[in-house]
Nucleic acid binder design. Structure first.
Lengths: 130, 130
DNA sequence: CGGTATCCGTTTGGATACTG
DNA sequence: CAGTATCCAAACGGATACCG
């Protein structure tokens, strides 16, 4: 997996495997919103408008489409309580969403670290300027 | 991190942190091609056209833009050997790309597992039909 | 080879209004 | 509230031609 310099080094078959698997993954959870919606729902079940508020910047139309996609792919369940008046709709993560734990953890860690790196770089830039 | 049913359960601050960190991550490595290009380059340094062949479906224009982006963000280095005639250009991963190892591993594993799940589901569907 | 420029159809997505 | 329909502008991206 790693070469003599500590760099990731893939053999041709490993590379093929990675390209196709990561391609499959991006196909279902790629895009700007899917993972964010899943993260927002891991805070707890949410109604449509709550969810829209939690996922900053998403429009109702896009949220609606993304939810349909996520439901189709088994990540999200749409729960309707028709006894309530007016009817209450809640979105809930399925068990299948749990399989994303590692992916989410990795992205979370990387994103946090990356932000720190960027901030350090920009602090250094300012020191050089001054 | 997990609730009583084994589901991922984020507190409000954890959710905020995840949303912003994952948002940062997707901002730089999101999109259809960035990770694939990085994976292709972990097989070894490549010239432009080789890279285009390795990353199936990408057009020269898009590859060109993506490479500029990846270079700007410190994932890729463009190496020019001007002694050669005609000049040879190679793309190489930087050390910073190594920080993506966990992310790539997680996506690779998840993607492979997901494909298997899908295939099983469709096999079952066929049994039910028959 | 390693790209870039241009043209142009397709897709995306915001804003707004509207429905049950 | 929980969306959907419509309109429209901007972004995306393929095809092609072209350059050093």
């Amino acid at each position: 997996m790693k070469d003599i310099n500590g760099k990731i080094r893939l053999s041709a078959p490993e590379c093929n495997s990675a390209l196709s698997a990561v391609g499959d993954a991006l196909y279902v959870i790629g895009g700007k919103w899917k993972l964010r919606i899943i993260i927002a729902l891991s805070e707890g079940n949410k109604r449509f408008n709550d969810l829209q508020r939690r996922v900053e910047g998403i429009s109702a139309r896009v949220l609606s489409n993304e939810l349909k996609d996520l439901e189709m792919n088994g990540f999200v369940k749409r729960m309707v309580d028709s006894k309530a008046k007016p009817v209450v709709v809640q979105y809930e993560l399925t068990d299948y969403s749990n399989t994303l734990e590692e992916v989410l953890r990795a992205l979370h860690n990387w994103g946090r670290q990356h932000r720190e790196n960027i901030m350090q770089r920009s602090r250094k830039m300012k020191l050089v300027e001054a």
